[in-house]
Amino acid sequence: MLTCKDFLAELSDYLDERIDAELRAKLERHITECPNCWVIADTTRKTIQIYKGMDPYPIPSEVETRLMLALEKRMAAKQK
């Protein structure tokens, strides 16, 4: 029998679908019997979905300007 601790240890691989069919069946049996682990699996999956592909804020224009100036300077030095 799988314990909740066993289930949690496999949770990442389960959500990433990186486990074999036999283990998957065991984990799925566990969550049909354990509402607590079902909720954890479900809300962890949703957590990953919400974050996936979250765009970074555009960098402030003055930061980009300084970056590009530093780069141009280095490029010019290299070409001399």
């Binding site: 949690l8 240890a9 949770l11 990442s12 809300t43 962890t44 949703k46």
Partner: peptide
């Protein structure tokens, strides 16, 4: 990486649960 990822995911899940 795997063990840190699991802990990060679980901690974030818990933090977001407070809002969601």
């Amino acid at each position: 990486v795997k063990s840190r990822l699991l802990r990060a995911r679980l901690q974030l899940r818990e933090k977001l649960t407070r809002y969601f």
